[in-house]
Design a binder for these strands. Structure first.
Length: 506
RNA sequence: GAGGCGCUAGCUCAGUCGGUAGAGCAACUGCCUUUUAAGCAGUGGGUCCAGGGUUCGAUUCCCUGGCGCCUCACCA
């Protein structure tokens, strides 16, 4: 079934028109009919953006050349025969001086129809006002887009913001307005883009290839999570939204792309909270002939380099805690972490003791006791939240994942690491499993758990066949990009680093 | 999934011990030729989230529901 435009849309839109909007529509009509101006023209050539005018002020003032710029009107201070506009463009804010002495009659009449929120073009010379603010003294005004929906009025003086657009629900549901009026929001997203660009730059510099793999998959895997399901009409088959790009990236390693990465959306059909959004961005990297130690070093490099580029320092603050990214980060075996933070010598404990301990802390293993899963669960309950500074937890019990190689020195544990910062997981990496017989066995066993654990993925025969073809020894790494952006920008909620977080319909 | 809190004008918020409501900003009308949270005077603007109950009367009290935020649980 194709989505059909609801017939009620138009009626609803009409209802929505309140008196403030009506007044602005009247102004559009006057602009069109009286001033004979199109309030929605097609182009405008601006010579400068705000920041360039400020940077080049001395030169522009000396030459008194005419500059032009385009932006959104954020404030109108009208004093009768003179007025000041603040307009906002890509480079920031610029003040425009309006006077009927400098403007022709038509443009002055147009000025009288300008509201906060309109997008205009202004041409004029650059001077400082009496109070020393760099200002474009307008000799020509152009209406570029008449806005009919009023913006929230946010004011600011001496760094103090007044009447902030603070209703989070409205902000997330109406992000364009939020981006326009809420200080700092745009900057957070600019930082997000810088972080992503920097990480890709480092990887590109190391000859990793950025690839794209299917988001719609007939069989999902690579993590334990509930998928979103969808349906392909022509093939009449069920498809799943990927929960991880891992299985396809490994197929590419088998195919000879021996350094690949993908940064993209994954989808998990789980609850929503401060650190979880149903769709989120993951970075996965695979490097042939490398092991988990190489991937740990790469993790350190990616994050410290990016932190330095974005924040100019390796120290940041996150919800009141100082985080120090200085290398090298501590590396701690999970068993040792349990010893250090929970006072438990897990290796000397019997299954009975472990199970009791887990129960006493309100934990359980889905589908019945398994020693390794119980240890992992104890770690989560007792240790995770205590890991504030960056630390690699290594050597998880073999039962925690079927996709990782056991450590040759002690096969009860994996060559795996997870990076924890501020009590949450940021990265996860392995020496990837490439023994086809072992892989078939562990994935089969995992698929059997589906009866008792609805998050266990199904058997993926096609993937096993790829591993049977022969995957070189490979190190793999996954980093949660949204959470990384959170810690590097100091945002406590994932919704504040996503342009459009998932919301229930109103 | 559980608990707490919130939802009143375009925005930010008061308020009504139950008698259908107010401020600031925004808007509108005046005044004002260097302002910057511009200022001064005046005017208009509300399904008080929705539904039900109690009541002569509910925006207010009670119940149910919706949406959001926070905390917890869940979460490779």
């Amino acid at each position: 079934m194709r989505p059909i435009l609801k017939t009620g849309n138009r009626a609803h839109a009409m209802e929505d028109i309140n008196s403030l909007i009506k007044i602005r529509i009247d102004k559009i009509n006057e602009i069109r009919e009286v001033l004979k101006i199109n309030p929605y023209p097609y182009t405008y050539n601006a010579s400068h953006i705000s920041s360039e005018i400020i940077d080049d002020y001395e030169k522009l003032f000396a030459s008194q050349e005419t500059v032009s710029l385009a932006g959104r009107v954020m404030a109108v201070r009208d004093m009768g025969k003179a007025a000041f506009l603040s307009i906002l463009d890509r480079g920031g804010r610029m003040q425009i001086y309006i006077s009927n002495k400098n403007l022709n009659e038509q443009d002055y009449k147009l000025f009288e129809k300008i509201d906060m929120g309109d997008i205009i073009g202004a041409r004029g010379v650059v001077k400082k006002t009496k109070v020393g603010e760099i200002t474009v003294f307008a000799s020509e005004l152009t209406m570029l887009t008449k806005s009919i929906r009023p913006l929230p009025v946010v004011k600011e003086k001496d760094g103090v913001t007044f009447d902030l657009f603070s209703d989070k629900e409205l902000r997330y549901r109406n992000r364009p307005v939020d981006l326009i009026v809420t200080p700092g929001v745009k900057e957070t997203f600019q930082k997000r883009l810088m972080i992503i660009k920097n990480i890709k730059g480092i990887l590109d510099g190391k000859n990793f290839l950025e690839v794209e793999t299917p988001i719609l998959q007939p069989i999902y895997g690579g993590a334990a999570a509930s998928p979103f399901t969808t349906h392909h009409n022509a093939l009449d088959i069920q498809l799943f939204m990927r929960i991880s790009p891992e299985p396809y990236l490994k197929r590419l390693i088998v195919g000879g792309f021996d350094r690949v990465y993908e940064m993209g959306k994954c989808f998990r059909n789980e609850g929503i909270d401060r650190t979880h959004n149903p769709e989120f961005t993951i970075l996965e990297i695979y490097q042939a002939y490398a092991d988990y130690e190489v991937m740990m070093n790469l993790t350190e490099e990616l994050i410290t380099d990016t932190c330095m580029k974005v924040n100019g320092s390796l120290e940041t603050e996150f919800s009141g805690k100082k985080i120090d990214f200085k290398k090298p980060w501590q590396r701690l075996k999970m068993a040792d972490a349990l010893k250090e933070f929970a006072g438990m010598d897990i290796e000397s404990m019997s299954d009975d003791e472990i199970e009791k301990k887990l129960k006493s802390h309100g934990g359980e293993v889905k589908g019945g006791y398994v020693r390794g899963l119980a240890i992992d669960s104890l770690f989560k309950i007792l240790v995770e939240e205590k890991l504030i500074q960056p630390v690699f937890i290594t050597h998880h019990p073999v039962e925690t994942t079927p996709l990782c190689k056991p450590d040759f020195s002690d096969e009860r544990y994996l060559q795996r690491f997870e990076l924890f910062i501020n009590g949450t997981e940021f990265a996860n990496g392995y020496s990837e499993s490439n023994d086809p017989l072992f892989q078939r066995k562990t994935l089969y066993e995992q698929s059997l758990r589906r009866d008792i654990d609805d998050e266990a993925p199904p058997m993926d025969e096609n993937f096993i066949q790829a591993i049977e073809t022969g995957m070189p020894p490979t190190g793999g790494l996954g980093i949660g990009i949204d959470r990384l952006v959170m810690i590097l920008t100091g945002e406590v909620s994932i919704r504040d680093v996503l342009f459009f977080p998932t919301m229930k319909p109103e």
